[in-house]
Amino acid sequence: MERAKQYIVELCCVYTLMSVLGAIVNIIAGTQTNNANVLVMFATCAIAAFVLYLHKLFDSVSPLVMIIVQYLIACGLCAVLLLVIQKVFNQTVTAKGWFEYYRSFTIPYIVLAALYYYRVFSETKKQDELIRQIQQKKES
């Protein structure tokens, strides 16, 4: 129950962020969205939040492996989502549609993964400096 609550909170945060970003992009580009897009975005956010939520299962592996595995899981779930959309709405997603969908999903993922990578290195550097300070203070 606690986990479900945590997941819903994460999903709300992710969806709010994506909606606001989407609205900003629409204003700048002068484009408009439709109901189907809103639902697909929500489903994609639910997948992303779920995949991010799995990180606790990967404590024993390296973060790099975790990022790759999470990406592959997300890709699999997104494929299921598109197949369900095709079945339920009786519509065909073209090859370009698949490509666009995965591209719009992959680019932010790579950017966020790079940021995470940078954060691990910068945080470790800071901690290393902190340890030096503590050691020097002890010696003085």
Binding site: P63, L64, V65, V120, F121, T124, Q127, I131
Partner: peptide
């Protein structure tokens, strides 16, 4: 020294 590996393990 505290250092991360390329696989991000610290």
């Amino acid at each position: 020294q505290l250092k991360p590996d390329l696989n991000m393990k610290v």
